[in-house]
């Protein structure tokens, strides 16, 4: 893979990630309004963010319910997926760069990008486990 191709692939992945996430976010919002809420929450509950009144935030949305939520046209999960697509977009950049470093046998940068990926997954998998202790 040449340097030329790497930048083009990265640029394309970034763009696809952003567009896909936007589509999901807007679909989710539309579903919430059309179906007056989702997943047992009323539209009003989903939209309420006032201190002390807010009933729904990310800690109450288990990611394990994703497939089921999407299948039942639950707007909450369309927004959730949109936000996670957004979070994964920059991560995929590091993965693609890592592949490029492996192919060009750039040892130092293979190690560096693996450390970055480790940090990302540490934040994603290890840290949340600490919250449940």
């Amino acid at each position: 893979m040449s340097k030329y191709e790497l930048n083009d692939i990265l640029s394309m992945v970034l763009r696809i990630g952003v567009v896909l996430s936007l589509v999901l976010l807007l679909t989710g919002i539309t579903l919430l309004f059309v179906l007056h809420g989702g997943g047992g929450y009323t539209l009003e509950q989903v939209a309420n963010y006032k201190p002390g009144q807010s009933t729904l935030n990310s800690s109450a949305i288990p990611l394990t319910g994703m497939v089921n939520g999407l299948a039942h046209l639950n707007g909450i999960y369309y927004i959730t997926l949109g936000l996670w697509v957004l979070i994964f977009t920059p991560i995929s950049i590091v993965v693609i760069a890592l592949v490029e470093f492996i192919m060009s046998k750039n040892r130092l940068y293979i190690v560096l990008s693996m450390i970055v990926l480790f940090d990302l997954f540490f934040a994603m998998l290890v840290v949340p486990a600490l919250f449940h202790v």
């Binding site: 729904l56 935030n57 990310s58 800690s59």
Partner: peptide, 11 residues
């Protein structure tokens, strides 16, 4: 991702 699990994201 940490903010997500901590409940700091209001969708």
């Amino acid at each position: 991702s940490i903010y997500w699990y901590a409940g700091y994201i209001q969708i």
